[in-house]
Design a protein around this nucleic acid. Structure first.
Lengths: 254, 254
DNA sequence: CGGTACATTGAGAAATTTCAAAGTTGGTGG
DNA sequence: CCACCAACTTTGAAATTTCTCAATGTACCG
């Protein structure tokens, strides 16, 4: 923490380029812990190591490719992205889906500095890279921040287990139903980004690639759900209409 | 770290009940970092909070059931165990497999104190529970220990991603081949517990439950591998004979 | 020495993929 | 503003993979 703090909150306000000022998600994600408080105000704004670096990237572009060096930890500010594994046969397995506010790799401060799996923008994305080194220092020094951060790791781990259960033990129909329910549950925890938490802005091919199914099969399943008035769907989105019935599907096969 | 250290290395040697003294795995797993050094020597041996608690449990018994309170972090000393999710339809999804030396839940120091998924002994198991509270204190105070511990978390996360890729994108045959290769790779990192790292002491039903397949289907696949002299198999174990050919299977379908 | 858990084998059934073709939608450039 | 293109979705039929059910075989444990 010996870095000279040459900037302050006031300097920040002078400059227009502090997007976090009007960020809607900030009260609800890790950025609150990262940006609020006295220590945060003294983090270096410019210099050899910037605390933050904001960037934009167009839909479908690769944000970080497997193997790249990486000295920043990314938070998605706006838009959706996903992590995937590229297999030698050309197939892609979606491993994680990132909504606005999500930390892309919560283990990054403790991880190797090489990207393990590529991350790609689904929509246009704005994101913020926090300095990995500075963050690591803060995690060691600030107990509450470390606690908030480890929560991210625990949450991601839980999501991975949930997806494992889906892929290993559920039928295709159950997987899709459970997937929708899990995304809805995540959206409900981010009141600021939801006009309607029941609208899932993901294309079917993404759902298929996450659940290890073909897009055709997902289409048929969604079609069935639509006929039973459990979901509505359109190009690039799904809307959950009947949570209860969807939940019943997941418990089916009992 | 204000706990009175009433015991010392000498006291330990007095008592016969310090299994770690002759532990073969200790140099190769996290116990090295937990037990070596000055701080470790001063950890409370008995009292209101024991630093360690050693236990044994018989094969097939549940070590910890989902929902139980838990103020210890477990390391498997001897034997094999697994974590599983119990589904309402009676099916079980294996989520993790623990070899001797493995930490069962590396996020435990930062996690809720409630067990998220049950853990069961596959063989007879000896295990050691470290005090969650004392460990948490040490992780905050000792940087090298924290670093070693976060490696455990990162490793588990990588394993989860690998299994996700298996379940989501590989055929049954490829899954079994990849599973064998991954277990072998893990065993090779524990020189002390391997007479032969190519012998995998797991029953086929366990492989099936981990890979989301039926035991019958796994049996057929293993039978095929056996015919091609890629593996040998018997009740409760598989032996990898031809690593190269097995690897070729995983890259198949290109 | 038997019983239980594990492994094998077969045949038919079910789930899912593959391949092919056509329908939709939203954005972009002219 | 329109037309067109590319990406996404839908639909169908056949092929393939995997499961289910059922029966038999086999090793280990008490």
């Amino acid at each position: 923490m010996g870095k000279a703090a040459t900037s302050s909150v006031q300097v920040r306000n002078d400059r227009e380029s502090f997007p976090c000022a009007e960020c809607q998600i900030r009260p609800f994600n890790i950025c609150k812990a990262l940006l609020d408080g006295e220590v945060a105000a003294q983090m270096p704004r410019e210099g050899r190591v910037d605390w933050q670096a904001h960037k934009k990237i167009a839909a479908h572009k690769i944000i970080k490719a497997v193997g790249e060096q990486l000295d920043r930890v990314y938070v998605v500010c706006a838009g959706w992205a996903f992590r995937f594994a590229q297999l030698p046969n050309g197939r892609r397995q979606i491993l994680s889906i990132f909504a606005p506010g999500d930390v892309v790799t919560p283990t990054r401060p403790f991880d190797e500095d090489v990207v393990g799996f590529s991350v790609q923008a689904l929509t246009d994305v704005r994101y913020c890279g926090y300095s990995r080194a500075l963050l690591k220092d803060r995690l060691a020094a600030e107990t509450p921040l470390l606690s908030a951060w480890t929560d991210l790791i625990v949450t991601e781990r839980k999501q991975n287990f949930d997806l494992l259960i889906d892929l290993g033990s559920l039928s295709a129909e159950e997987r899709v139903a459970d997937f929708l329910l899990r995304v809805v549950a995540r959206l409900e925890q981010r009141p600021s980004l939801v006009q309607d938490p029941l609208v899932i802005p993901l294309p079917q091919w993404l759902v298929a690639a996450a659940l290890g199914l073909t897009p055709e099969h997902v289409s048929r399943i969604v079609g069935g759900f639509r006929q039973q008035r459990m979901v509505e769907s359109g190009r690039g989105f799904l809307r959950v209409v009947d949570l209860r019935q969807l939940r019943r599907i997941v418990w089916l096969r009992v």
